[in-house]
Design a protein around this nucleic acid. Sequence first.
DNA 1: ATTAGCAGTCTTGCCTTTTGAGTGCTAACA
DNA 2: TGTTAGCACTCAAAAGGCAAGACTGCTAAT
Lengths: 350, 350
Amino acid sequence: MNDRQHEPFALTERKKAILRAVIDVHIRMGEPVGSKFLLQDQQFSLSSATIRNEMAELEEMGYLEQPHTSAGRIPSPAGYRLYVDSLMTRYSVSKQETTRAAAIAAQKTDAVKKVLEQASRLVTEFTQYTSLYMYGGEVAESVLRFNSVWVDDVSFILVMTLSDGSVQSRGVQSPIPLDPDGLKSVTEVLNRNLSDVPMEKINLPLILRMEEQLGRFGPVMSPVMKTVYDIIGDPSPVELHFTGLNRILRYPEFSDILRVQKLFDLFESEEEITRLILDAVPGQVQIVIGSQTEIPGMEGATMIFRSFAESGHPISAIGLIGPSRMEYARSVALIGLLADNVERSIGHTA
Amino acid sequence: MNDRQHEPFALTERKKAILRAVIDVHIRMGEPVGSKFLLQDQQFSLSSATIRNEMAELEEMGYLEQPHTSAGRIPSPAGYRLYVDSLMTRYSVSKQETTRAAAIAAQKTDAVKKVLEQASRLVTEFTQYTSLYMYGGEVAESVLRFNSVWVDDVSFILVMTLSDGSVQSRGVQSPIPLDPDGLKSVTEVLNRNLSDVPMEKINLPLILRMEEQLGRFGPVMSPVMKTVYDIIGDPSPVELHFTGLNRILRYPEFSDILRVQKLFDLFESEEEITRLILDAVPGQVQIVIGSQTEIPGMEGATMIFRSFAESGHPISAIGLIGPSRMEYARSVALIGLLADNVERSIGHTA
DNA sequence: ATTAGCAGTCTTGCCTTTTGAGTGCTAACA
DNA sequence: TGTTAGCACTCAAAAGGCAAGACTGCTAAT
């Protein structure tokens, strides 16, 4: 219907070069970049007028935009997208960064959360952007084996080896006096009836049957089952943590308090960001350019992250959030490096 | 030396009433309050001129200040101090608040941190201010007793009952094949040599002696000692967590991005706030009016908190941070209520 | 296809003016 | 002696006007 049958512009090499230059400069300076400045900053064997023409076409193609008529150009979300997908020059991590990151893999603590947190701290330290980590409530399906340690007449320690390989222990108060032999039979009954039984299969008949088998030690079941439920019962909700929230405030695009408010509302609700991570393909660095999404509050911000999967779906992640005008190459490389090390570390424990 | 021998003003009841009124109104409106407005808002049987005189004297006494000559008065830090100490009208918590808060004490999970976190969430939900909790690295002094659970030839689980009453377990990989009897003797040696021995007393000669006692199982000591060190060795640093950081952005006194930056820098460093809590008297609600301290970034903000002590010194805390213009009475009451419940809850576990 | 030159646009900074809220002071009053 | 009405004064904040400067788009020449 539109009469303007407009020969679509081709993305020539020269256009690419100019687009890259514009984005590079904008990332460095944070301000709209004009044809004249571009000319003297980067070396092009062209005149400013030609660059102006090219920039006008790049704008029509949707890669650049103009805050107002008499201003320079800034990259559009689509421009950033093209940039990160195929324009930017790779960054290779420094020796020092590699070494520091390796420390994550070195410590093989059981605690996945600690590893993620440390990685997240390093992200902020390296990049100076706000970093985040998601920690999925990795709830074991079932208890593989029960062991117990006798403490005194009314208390003992229940040690549970879980289906995910981890080990949890809890103190249990017994409502009746219990000698070491009694405890032994309790443990046996638990192993016989509950080994590798998922939570949803543990029902009242089963519990009653166990109480019966225990005879006079039956009353012990009540606190024991409470403890079991505590361990494999309710899937603790996904956690989302941020480090270096002050960092994002340093950028002029977030000098408007209203924008910061919206961004922090987004952080606080946790929901949107969590879903973003859960929906993404695990194992590779993702770049989400805020204004390309429908997520309120993400305008002008970009999130880079990589998630870690367990049996197929993402369960945890590390990443960063900064202005869309961001050092992409470096950020992507560093998230990749740190994620590699996290993966190695939590792989070790399994 | 100063010739101006100025009869010091007395803090008459009328002055108190006016000061209270000024602060009440300022808390509600957020703007400097003038004599005329005060008159029509609250009912005084006085003229605006009289109030002006009184306010001028209150200013000279240091309780009020004037942003500029032609503005109303705002409370000074000292004014707020007087207000919270003796002027404000008590707030009594609602039935609903009491009930909700009681849920904290109800769940007696081992995890102190979880309790603090939940309390912190409730603080924000109730008051709509940014809340925080501090969680002190409660490191046990020593291991009271070792128990072990045999898993397979090369791995076992070490269960340690600590001096603070808690129980920790860790999987250990053995460098040499180990049968159940071997594990038993390892455990015996540990109990004989390390029971209730504080970290600083565990030195190389002691470890060597144990290896000797173990004979061919000596090599097991290395991973075991690593685990022990992991549990009682390095005091994990004090943690400080915030909830509802977006809340503070809603107040006009924090609409200036520079102020917000400084405040968030303060949050991020954690050091100053941690010390504030550690230096305070535990067990009672503390009110720290930012501008009365030397802490950079606290200007215009007020922190209300209560800490929990263990053997005398503060180890954890919950609290909130908001603008100095804050609903003090309600905030204090709610922090008190929630802290009571936290105390009850973590008391139960001990 | 490229470029020089120029008119046109729109933000930004700066200065001045106006407005209005609130004060302090003086003089009258109970 | 304490209280009040009235008035001149101050100062921040808002509104308006003006000049500077940075870029652009377009036209015409190369």
